[in-house]
Design a protein around this nucleic acid. Structure first.
Lengths: 250, 250
DNA sequence: CGTCACTTTGAGGCTAGTCAACGGCGGTGG
DNA sequence: CCACCGCCGTTGACTAGCCTCAAAGTGACG
């Protein structure tokens, strides 16, 4: 490990880091001892911008777990004919790399959708920490379990309307910004790729939602006026957790 | 807990159980200490037959992890219009319930496809054991990770041919019986439901494979003569692990 | 002010779903 | 022993949802 400026900076306040971090839903959040311990193993944060080389690529040895601190990271695979298949969008607080833990090599590549920051937890240190803190290990399993449940739900053979509805609901929950404005960081092409829909289908379906008065669309983003109607469509996918973010205090 | 005959039987040789078990790919398999410790927490085995009440149902409190010892268990959800959505087929060695670990309640129901046996690990004991044996906790995370990777892969918008090919390849690997005969325990209706294909489409696609000489079909099951061709179709889903079971010794 | 990426709109085609009907097989009961 | 029934698998004809292809409109940025 070389000692460049970025590393030095990152290590000046190693334990204060996660405790001061504004990302509430981060995996690092937990009992204070766990959070500080997690902080202590972090390598310097990385900044990633769209167009930059991938954070990691398919087949790379998995040597770190990543958490998103800001922005949006997408993971994807490339099939034999060059087509890109987006496997997930990772927003602040999300872990990246959970689907590679058993294989030891990355099952996807990762790039930034918008300028982003990711925290890097070296895997060897993570494993040591998990041995010392069983409750942290349990939380990691639970995170993986949650991802699994979501992936299984998205697998279903659902209509374009249902898929897009589920996507909007899911994003609204995770991007909740204090108002009902939903600013999606990724282009419709990526949404379509992720949902296995053509870009045109995403656009048309969204327009349908607008024409039904469920969604308002302007330069700044989306407004989900018909949250309940959209959630009803999405219910088979996201489950019966149909309350909007601003009502999820409990 | 009442002390019926079955329980008494199961507890007579608690530690010998997993070590003597013929299921090689079981989660309980590992370093000897882990296997015996896992054995020690097991509740009596359950036998489940098709048509019997579910092993567990959506919304039940998750109080145990289950491993399949024999047969085939399917997990499924039921949407608001009564339609069944199969989420997974669990074969000997598989864990059931991994997608519920974070939620604490079952996200699916589970019934037997054929007469089956499942081992029951009470969750409270599992958690204690995981705290004491971090390497076991790591293996649990890895299992969950593997399931996640599979689910993400199956999510893709693939053609009927690709889906069925991936299903056959996946099943061949897990049901490997020493010969190249593949005896699927579930009816085509269930396969179609799982793959989000109509039963008729499963049948027609299978016939296509037969007509191409890739598959032989008789009363006893399937024979994958064109394993390589099928695996090539399935490659975007199952990944580049294209060797048949009987060549997977390494 | 031009370029480029993204979005939007339209027309036509294909995959897979739906509906309907038949054949085979196993179980059940007369 | 055979007739009946139900489930599963199979086949064909038709339909629908979504994809593909093509082209024009829109906003961001140099």
């Amino acid at each position: 490990m070389s000692m460049n400026t970025a590393q030095a900076d990152a290590r000046i306040q190693p334990q204060a880091d996660c405790l001061l971090c504004p990302v509430q839903s981060c995996f690092a959040r937990g009992p204070r001892a766990e959070t500080t311990a997690w902080s202590a193993i972090l390598a310097p944060r990385l900044s990633v911008i769209p167009g930059a080389p991938p954070l990691f690529a398919v087949g790379d040895k998995l040597d770190s777990l990543y958490t998103v601190r800001a922005g949006c990271i997408k993971t994807y695979t490339v099939d034999s004919s060059g087509g890109e298949h987006i496997r997930g969008f990772h927003l602040p607080g999300d872990l990246i790399g959970l689907d590679a833990l058993d294989y030891g090599r990355c099952r996807s590549s990762a790039v930034a959708v918008v300028p982003s920051q990711v925290c890097v937890a070296p895997l060897s240190a993570v494993r040591k920490l998990l041995s010392a803190q069983p409750s942290l290990a349990q939380r990691l399993t639970e995170r993986t379990s949650r991802e699994l449940a979501l992936a299984l739900a998205l697998c279903g053979g659902f209509s374009a309307e249902q898929r897009l509805a589920a996507f909007l609901i899911h994003m609204e929950r995770r991007l909740y910004s204090g108002n009902s404005l939903l600013r999606l960081p990724m282009p419709q092409r990526d949404i379509g790729n992720y949902l296995r829909l053509a870009t045109e289908t995403v656009c048309r379906t969204l327009k349908q939602f607008v024409s039904r008065g469920w969604v308002q669309q302007d330069h700044f983003g989306l407004r989900l006026d018909g949250y309940k109607a959209i959630a009803a469509l999405a219910e088979p996918i996201v489950g019966p957790l149909t309350a909007p973010s601003f009502a999820l205090a409990a």
